[in-house]
Each structure stands twice: as C-alpha cells, then as structure tokens.
Write a protein that binds this DNA or RNA. Structure first.
Length: 381
RNA sequence: GGGAGUGUCGCAUAGCGGCAAUUGCACCUGACUGUAAAUCAGGAGACUUCGGUCUGCGCUGGUUCGAGUCCAGCCACUCCCA
C-alpha cells in the first residue's frame, strides 16, 4: 500500500495526504525552502512550526559542501540537527547542475562540479546524491536529474531525458542498497522521480511513461519555471499530469507564484516548493490577500496598518507597514525576518485554504477569486 | 594685518579647455519561481512635436569657436604667521 491517500477531488484538483515516518502531510502543500538547513531570513524550526509549515526542503549539494553530510549523519540526521521533527524533503543537487552551469561538466557517470564556495573539485553521481541524502536522513529524497535549460534543442532534451531515466534507475538501486544497511538512519527514506523534457509535450509524456514504470514513491515535474512563459508551463502540465500515477504524490518543483500554485493545483499537482516567498521577502516584496506589496515603497512611510490586514501571522499581528518599511530603510535584519515570517505564513495559509476549498467543493470559486489577484500589485489602499 | 588653500546633485567625492558633468552613501522605482541573491537592475535639472531646446559646477566679469576647468575682482569657509 502506498503512502498517498486521495481524499477528494474537484475536477482535476486533488485533496490528499501523504503518510511518512515523520508524520502526515496534508496536500496540496507548500514546502518551505531552507536550502542550507535554515530558512534564510532567520526563522528557526520551532518558529517555522508556528507558521503552519508542514514540510521543509533542504539541499543535498549545499549541505554536502557545508557542513558536510557526514557531519550531519554524526549529529543524527537533519531532523535532529535543526530540531525539526516533521517531514523534510531533500533536493538532489540536480537543480545545481542547472543553476551552477558554468562550474560543471555533465557525463554519463555523473556531474563534475567546482564548488561555488572555494572552487574545489567535486563529483556528484546518482549514487553519490543518494548517499548524501541517506546521510542527511531526509523523509523524502529526490532523484538526481538534469534540469535542462529553456530553451533547449529537441535532440539535447531527448538525450538528457534518457540519461535522467538511467540515472533514476541507479538512484533507485542505490536507495534499495542503502535501506538494507544497519547504520542507515532512515531505512524508510522515500524516493521521488523527476520528469523532464523541456517544453516538448511528447518528450514530457514519453519520459513520464518511462519513469512511472519504476514504481517510485512519488513523481515530480522538474525543469519548469526556468524562463519559459507561464502559459508554456501550464501547457506542459496539461499534457503531462494526466500521465502521472493517480495513486502517488505529484510535485511541481520550484513553483511558484500564488497564481502558479492555484493553477497547478487545478491541473492536479499536490506539492510545491519555491524560494520566492523567502527571497522576495528579504528583498522587500510581500504577498498578501490583496496582492503584492513592495514594503520599501515611500507610500508606506506613515501607514499604521499591518502589512496584510487579512493576515493572522505574528508579524501582521504586531507591526505596522510604517515600521517594516523603516526596518528596511534602516537595514535592520528584523525587516527580512518579519517579511519572511509573513510570506511563509501566507504561502502555508494559501495551500491550507486551497485544501479547505477542495474539501468543500469550492475550489473553482476560490480559483476564480484569487488566481489573478494574488500575483498582481495590491491596489493602492 | 600677512600668507596658503578650498568652494561641483541632500552629504561626500572625480573632473589634461569640448560636460547635463565621475563615484560612494542616501533617495525613488522595478526584478526575483527545485537559493552562488539581506541580491541585482534602472531612475534621479527643466521643458519637449523625442529631433532637440533651455538652465547648470560660490558670485561678477574676462580670455576662447567653446570655460566646472584659464585670468581678474568679490564673497564664504579652513589652516599657518603676527
């Protein structure tokens, strides 16, 4: 019996739950990104729990470099290390093959990297990635894939997909091997495969059909939101999601804006992660139920209202727009902390409301009300 | 009273005679999608029929085709000597 339980559907939108050894995840869900085992902006694990965060995402590549996955294994795994007892998903380092493109060389056996920290030479293969993730002892490990840039030539995308499939087989075999070892911390670690294929619908579908044969714990759509127009992303989701197993979690990697999330849920996606709420928060942009606000703008200089009047987060319960703007202008780190707290609470509340909407068969109405509004600038109020 | 030096965008700075003028901070605006990002980009005299036009580097004159730049006088500030 699988880890995913489908509770309810509304058209293609799915309400479900994922059972793990670190607790149950209600889906659709947003995974809060803490790349280096920390939410950038200074939010600790206990605080994160208060922001309705169900699951945190950490990164294989970054933690392998620093402090080193063996250090984390020595410390008892990521959960103990950062004092987070709910699920953790680790990304495989595949995205860094894409984002650190100038520092790597891709081969069949794996990828040769130069560390972005000190230039030292590294090698990450499917086996190495899984070994690192095993040491990290995350709840869910991601397969080591190649995230192809956009645009990419058809031939290259096709060959890359085939290689990603071969790499996925190696990931699965390595995971099975490690699960037998007595000193493996999490012998029940889950493995998700990743679909690629750039913006070519037939490649996407062929690749999905190939990897679903491997009967993994869940499936992700990768390689989207990497520069293609939003409509392209939706077109690919429309094409590929129907080919994803219905009895397993579906994860859209790296996405996205509140609108993207609503639209992807409408197309059958269950899980999301994105740096946008934390990064934009640190840079002064917040998401609200009225739309986007740039908190550095002069218009908030003497605005006594909370950042989002419809928000129950600790930042909105205690501080004014004028104060937050002041903190940004004064370069105080509390500025980024408060906006990160708000944005994560917003994303976690957004997915919570999506779940409630599907529960009550009101998702289409929810989508109609918020899909466009949330990613536009808030009207001057 | 004598001598030396300095006055350029809010502050601080750069500027061999071709300059609407450098750079930093501050200011304004925008971007950010599996995080090499507490980052990055743009704007910042006025008017414009977007080709330009006008005003502008303490003040007033002068030299010059052309002056923030050279000269003279004045004003202000700083330092040194009495």
């Amino acid at each position: 019996m699988g880890i995913y339980q489908l509770l309810k559907t509304e058209n293609k939108a799915r309400r479900g739950q994922i059972t793990t050894i670190h607790g149950i995840l209600q889906t659709p869900c947003f995974m809060n990104v803490g790349t280096s085992a920390a939410i950038k902006g200074g939010v600790s694990s206990p605080e994160l729990a208060d922001l309705k965060c169900q699951v945190e995402l950490c990164n294989t590549y970054h933690l392998h470099l620093r402090p080193g996955d063996t250090v984390i294994k020595t410390m008892g795994g990521l959960h103990k290390f950062m004092n987070w007892n709910r699920p953790i998903l680790t990304d495989s380092g595949g995205f860094q093959v894409f984002s650190l493109a100038k520092l790597r060389k891709i081969k069949e056996e794996g990828v040769y990297f130069q560390s972005h920290l000190d230039g030292s030479r590294l090698f990450i293969s499917p086996e190495v990635s899984i070994q690192i993730q095993s040491n990290l002892a995350s709840t869910i490990a991601m397969a080591f894939d190649e995230c192809v840039e956009n645009p990419a030539p058809y031939d290259y995308s096709a060959r890359s997909c085939e290689r990603t499939t071969r790499w996925l087989i190696r990931c699965k075999e390595e995971m099975q091997r490690l699960s037998q070892l007595p000193d493996t911390i999490n012998q029940k670690q889950l493995l998700f495969g990743i679909n690629q294929g750039c913006t070519f619908e037939n490649l996407r579908i062929e690749h999905m059909q190939a990897i679903r044969e491997l009967d993994l714990d869940g499936y992700a759509v990768g390689g989207l939101a990497v520069g293609e127009p939003t409509e392209e992303m939706y077109r690919i989701l429309d094409a590929v999601v129907p080919h994803m197993p219905a009895d397993k979690p579906r994860y859209l990697m790296g996405v996205g804006t509140p609108s993207n999330i609503i639209e992807a849920v409408a197309r059958g996606i269950d899980m999301f992660d994105c740096v946008m709420p934390t990064r934009n928060a640190r840079h002064g942009t917040i998401f609200t139920w009225s739309g986007i606000r740039h908190m550095k703008n002069r218009t908030y200089q003497t605005d006594p209202r909370p950042m989002d009047e419809a928000c129950q987060c600790p930042a909105c319960q205690n501080f004014s727009r004028a104060y937050v703007r002041h903190l940004f202008k004064a370069n105080e780190m509390l500025a980024g902390r408060l906006t990160v707290i708000h944005n994560l609470y917003f994303y976690n509340t957004l997915t919570e409301k999506i779940r409630e909407a599907i529960d009550h068969a009101e998702f289409q109405a929810f989508r109609a009300e918020y899909s466009e509004k949330l990613s536009k600038k808030a009207p001057d109020d």
